[in-house]
Structures are given as C-alpha cells and as structure tokens.
Design a protein around this nucleic acid. Structure first.
Lengths: 155, 155
DNA sequence: CCGACTATTTGCAAGTTACACCTAGCATTA
DNA sequence: TAATGCTAGGTGTAACTTGCAAATAGTCGG
C-alpha cells in the first residue's frame, strides 16, 4: 500500500514504517487536532503541517486530507465556508463543531488505550528480538524441519 | 470497516477503538511475536491468543490470521509443515526463519518509533480535548468566526 | 447418523491508501 | 503574450486490508 515516502532509501537509522506497510495514518485525529489547534484551517495548510504531526513517516496524502475533510463535514464534525478574502485560489476553511469536539475527545480516549496496547506490543517485540539476537551466531531457528507436506499451492 | 467486536455496546468506560474505525490491527508483528514466543504454532492457536495480544479490542479475525501466515511464508519469513501427529484435523505448524527473526527486529524498531509518535499525538489530543472542555458550556467554537487572522506564512 | 469442536481456506463487500492527474488563480519571467 | 511555478482544491483508480460468512474436513460423543 505505501510504496515510498520522503524517508525512502535514505538510511535514517532503522527501517522506515512505510516499508513495513500496514500502518494506518491516523488521519482523522491528526486532522481534528490540527483544526482544533488553530480554530480555522484549510486543507492545504494541513497538508503542509501533517508531515510533522503524522504518526508514520509518510505524512498525509493530500487526497486523503481533502476526502477526510469532506467525510468529517458529512458527519457533522466540521463545517466549512469558502474564503475568498485573500489573493490566490479560494480556500475552503474548516472549523470544528461541538460534535467534532466530542469526536476529538473520543479519539483522545481511544488513542490512550491504543497507545498503551501498542507500547506493550512494542516492549514484547523488543524483548523477543533481543533474547534471540544474543543466541543468533548460528541460525536462530532450525530452518528446514521436514517441510514435507507443503502441498497447497503455497501462495 | 470494523463493525463490531466483543466490546461493542457494553459500556466499558470510553468509546471502543472499533467504533472509531480506521485502526490497523498490527497483525504482522502480533503474529511474528506469537510464533517467536512459542517457537512453533498453528493458526488456530494464534486466533485464540490474539485477543489478548492485539492492539485494538477486536482481536484478529481468523481470515486475517491465515492469510497473513501465507503471506509471511511467501515472503520467506516463516516456514510451515503439516502436523498430523495428533488427533483432529491436520494443523499447519509455522516456525520463524532467520529472515522472519530479522523482520521481527525491524518491526520492533518501527513500533518503537510509531509508539513514540502515537504517544505524542495522544498527548496533544488529550490536551486539546481538555483545554476546550473547560470552556465548553457554550458552543465550543463560534462557527463562522474569522479568528485572529491565523496567517500561517506556510512557506 | 447427527451434532459439536477443532482447523484451514476462500469469497465478497466495504473501506483506506498512494499515486497520478486535473482544474484554477495569481505572480514572475522571458 | 507565453511559459513557468506556486497555491489550493478535487477526482480516478489500482492495490490492499479488514470483517464477516461460508465451505471443507477430521475426530469424538451420543
């Protein structure tokens, strides 16, 4: 799904979350937070800030941003108006509704739980990765245990 | 995407991560960890343990588990053999390869980074949710305001 | 034989993502 | 004037994951 990002192939110390695939971008809370923080934003603004706020290294795709904004508006979480008061193309400016504020509070609770679980998972992965690494001068696991019955198309 | 889970509508204090949608299950690291921890597992075993290890409350769907196992095998992260030594239907038993061990180490690094980012996001969401909650007897945001010209030079 | 449990696999609808591409306003430069 | 580049919003599509349901099988108890 994610095929590259600004970090791709740059050797920034450790594998990139984008190369691992399978990570959501948490676009909704990131964007709700951006709107709540500024009171009023347009999509392009979010796209420029999102790189720093995003959970993974890929930032948020502009397509995702604009579609998420429309989805949030359809759900009543934000309302928008067109701002033509400044030069340049018109901007669609968004503000949170009370429902959107409530949604952000819900996200805060959910994220707290998810973060805790993820922290535990991370800890366990690190422990497992380390415990085997010490005993890994030889192949960590006897690969090739009579794999005999591997019929089934094998993917 | 996720429509229910065992927690659905049970009022366990706070909204369920499943109701928020948009959360990946981190199936791959959870499963790699399960395999690494036991040395040898089959899919059904993972399905039964996964509820406790999963990052969200939904656990891991058995379809996801079996498909992920095949994908991991196709990528050389695990190898399988059929175990018919015990009564009941044959079980496909998986062990990690050295490449799979390496993948787990990579996941450990990625998860560490993601956890840190997620923690920051969580913290910011909580702060935003709280700071406005105190001032939210009246509608949280006057919709349509032109707030103090958040001019965000942006570049 | 029938159901219950174990165990694996597949089909499908729904949803998200990454990328490419498009429209359009305005400013600078040749 | 034309070309170029930045700002700003939007759409189309392929690839992928997920959740749920259903199919297939082996074994055991009644």
């Amino acid at each position: 799904m994610p095929r590259r990002c600004h970090r791709y192939g740059q050797g920034n110390g450790g594998p990139c979350s984008c190369e691992m695939g399978n990570l959501y971008r948490f676009a909704e809370p990131v964007m709700l937070l951006a709107i709540a923080g500024r009171g009023e934003v347009h999509g392009y603004q979010i796209a420029q800030e999102a790189e720093g706020m995003a959970v993974t290294h890929a930032g948020l795709d502009s397509g995702v941003i604009y579609r998420t904004l429309r989805r949030l508006e359809a759900a009543g979480r934000v309302v928008s108006r067109w701002d033509t008061s400044r030069p340049g193309p018109a901007r669609r400016v968004y503000v949170l509704t009370e429902s959107g504020m409530q949604h952000l509070r819900e996200w805060a609770q959910v994220l707290e739980a998810v973060t805790a679980s993820l922290q535990a998972l991370t800890h366990n992965c690190q422990k497992a990765a380390q415990s085997r690494r010490s005993a890994a001068t030889r192949p960590a696991l006897p690969v090739g245990v009579s794999t005999s019955r591997n019929r089934m198309g094998a993917g």
